[in-house]
């Protein structure tokens, strides 16, 4: 194993990790406002990839228009999920809502299968051209898009939550829902906004990764699992945790291929997650320790 190969493992770990991180960010966004793990998050990513593939590959839309339309359309799906299902449960526990998101994810997946069928969809990378070579290791151009956009999105979300009034209000809902109500914040509206934002974010992730990973109707669950693992590994409820968790997960997976038989990749990553959660339940960065009153009002 020479240096170039080790570098290659690190790069492929970071690329995959950036994908997990993007999905994880969406998880965190909804968790921040609602305490709910939205298991339909992976379906938002899948829908983003499929819609963009169809708009670009079959309808031949210009890429920017296809991407913006996709993000808007999936954002609307997010609003519908909240409007049609989540907000209907007035006094449901968090677990009820989590189960609803699972049900919604199955529905979205089935609809996607009936619509586009089981074959993988795909469109060309944003930037054409051969991959970069750094000290003998290969970096796909699309991977740079994934990592770069991930960094921009994370910085943007950081600013949103710390600087904008809307972001602060969403954060307030997360920290203390009752106190947020007493501040005159319409908590339900914040939940709706968080669903739209995280669906749009999921769609963006789907658009970015499809040139690398293809888009198939059934990819949502695996992505959701990895995104969830990324968030949990970093620690739920902290901005930045999904990024740290995602990159760590990607690197662990890549490293596991070096030291173990390769089929173990997925199990190793989840095993590490379990170990981290057993040793430090709040995640690597430490999430919000205090559990809050979580009945929907």
């Amino acid at each position: 194993m020479d240096a170039a190969q080790l570098l290659q493992f690190a790069i492929s770990g970071l690329t995959v990790g950036a994908i997990y991180a993007l999905v994880g960010l969406g998880f965190n966004l909804i968790f921040n406002a609602t305490d709910v793990i939205n298991f339909a998050q992976g379906e938002f990513v899948m829908l983003g990839g499929i819609l963009a593939s169809i708009a670009i590959g079959q309808w031949h839309w210009p890429m920017w228009l296809a991407i913006l339309t996709t993000i808007a359309a999936v954002g609307l799906v997010g609003a519908l999920v909240d409007f049609g299902a989540v907000s209907r449960v007035r006094r449901g526990s968090v677990m009820t809502i989590v189960m609803i998101t699972l049900g919604v994810s199955v529905m979205i997946k089935t609809a996607a299968l009936l619509w586009v069928g089981p074959n993988p969809l795909y469109f060309d990378p944003f930037t054409a051209g051969p991959p970069l070579r750094i000290f003998g290791a290969v970096v796909q151009l699309q991977a740079l898009w994934v990592i770069g956009t991930g960094a921009v999105v994370m910085a943007g979300l950081g600013l949103f939550f710390s600087r904008s009034a809307l972001g602060r209000e969403m954060l307030a809902c997360a920290i203390d829902r009752e106190a947020a109500y007493l501040m005159g914040i319409d908590v339900r509206r914040m939940v709706r906004i968080s669903f739209v934002l995280s669906a749009a974010l999921g769609a963006l992730a789907g658009v970015l990764i499809t040139p690398l990973t293809n888009a198939t109707y059934d990819q949502g669950f695996t992505l959701a699992l990895k995104g969830f693992a990324a968030s949990a590994l970093g620690g739920f409820g902290r901005s930045g945790s999904a990024i740290v968790g995602g990159l760590a997960l990607g690197l662990i997976e890549a490293a596991s291929v070096v030291v173990m038989p390769s089929g173990w990749k997925d199990s190793v990553a989840l095993l590490v997650l379990i170990l981290v959660l057993v040793v430090k339940p709040s995640g690597l960065l430490g999430g919000r320790a205090e559990r809050r009153h979580t009945q929907a009002l």
């Binding site: 009034a165 602060r168 209000e169 954060l171 307030a172 920290i175 203390d176 009752e178 106190a179 947020a180 007493l182 501040m183 005159g184 914040i185 919000r288």
Partner: peptide, 17 residues
């Protein structure tokens, strides 16, 4: 029920509505 992770000023500003 203070918003612990936020700054004092952010806490006050949440009264915006």
């Amino acid at each position: 029920h203070i918003f612990g992770p936020m700054t004092v000023e952010d806490n006050l500003l949440l009264g915006r509505q």
